[in-house]
Amino acid sequence: MSEGSSSLPLVAIVGPTGSGKSELALQLAERFGGEAVNADSMQFYRGMDIGTAKLPEAERRGIPHHLMDFLGVREDTTVAAFQHMARTAIADIRSRGRLPILVGGSGLYNRAAIDVLEFPGTDPAVRAALEHELELRGLPVLMARLQDVDPVSAERIGDAKRVVRALEVFELTGRPFSSFMPERQYVVPTIQIGLNGDRAELHGRLAARVHGMVDAGLMDEVASLIPEGLREGRTARKALGYEQFLRVLDGESTVARASEETIVATRQFARRQITWFRADPRVQWLDWSQAGLGGAAEALVANSGVAGA
């Protein structure tokens, strides 16, 4: 690729957890001279490696990976802050004549990086009041309120953090959070490649993956993060597997039960990811089990105008 080119596209690899996005990103990076930009919100955290399926540095084949390991488990970031960091990284990669490859299954973070998308402000007092109400009255009460004021968002989201955010936006602006989601319009030329496949095969992959994480020392990893503040972190402690194995360490669950709960939660998360990305008609889908997957993905990129790289 030509040095300093600003015409290079952005490649975004999307799809459910366990579909092989990280491996495909490596293949495309090797073929086209690319660098990866992480869009998995749980891989932002230092020390959360096994449970987030973070690709070990030794397995990255020398490909630079941006936006990993920049938060402690007590810390949080916002989608707006991620948007700025991701776009800065993407612009830097393109300015050096390299191909930026966004990879990760956090849907809103992915959209924030690739689309024209503005974020309404925040108010710590309003946020704190909603979080206090969440603790006192529970998520169903807040979900019911969100259904009344913003049924579109209520259909799309279900986790407590995003419900609180949607209600905060409504209280601050008088507008439903869903109204801030504009028409799909890329910031820079973008190719979205989606990975999907047989649902039963995915369930099997996810079960094997969770058991592999447990065998690799997930519980020890969770225990090692407690002194770092895992229990106090509003977001990190709720990550798949970490919440379940904290209960094991507290004597409230067993390894077998925590493993099964993690498998179920991961399947549910994968289903939400598929729903999110399927709603975007711009995604070009490939079957993760097809012969020549890497070649098919390379053809999509090459045919976009990167041919000859």
Rank of each mutant, 00 (worst) to 15 (best):
M1P: 12
S2Y: 13
E3P: 10
S7N: 11
S19C: 07
K21C: 05
K21A: 00
Q27R: 12
G33L: 02
A39G: 07
Q43L: 08
Y45T: 10
D49C: 09
T52C: 06
E57G: 08
E59D: 07
R74D: 13
E75K: 07
T78E: 06
Q83H: 06
Q83T: 11
R87G: 07
A91F: 03
R98Q: 04
V103L: 00
N110Q: 13
G121D: 03
T122W: 02
V126K: 04
L136V: 14
L139Q: 12
V141Y: 03
L142D: 05
M143R: 11
A144T: 13
R156E: 11
K161N: 11
R162K: 10
V164R: 04
V164T: 03
L167R: 09
R184S: 11
I193W: 02
I193F: 00
I193Q: 01
L195S: 01
A200V: 14
E201G: 14
L202G: 02
A207H: 09
A208D: 07
V210Q: 02
M219E: 13
M219P: 08
M219N: 04
S224F: 01
E228R: 15
L230G: 06
G233L: 14
A236G: 08
K238H: 11
A239P: 04
Y242G: 02
L249E: 11
G251N: 01
S253V: 13
T254S: 15
T266L: 10
A279M: 01
S289M: 11
A291F: 05
L293F: 09
A297E: 05
L300G: 02
N303Q: 12
S304M: 09
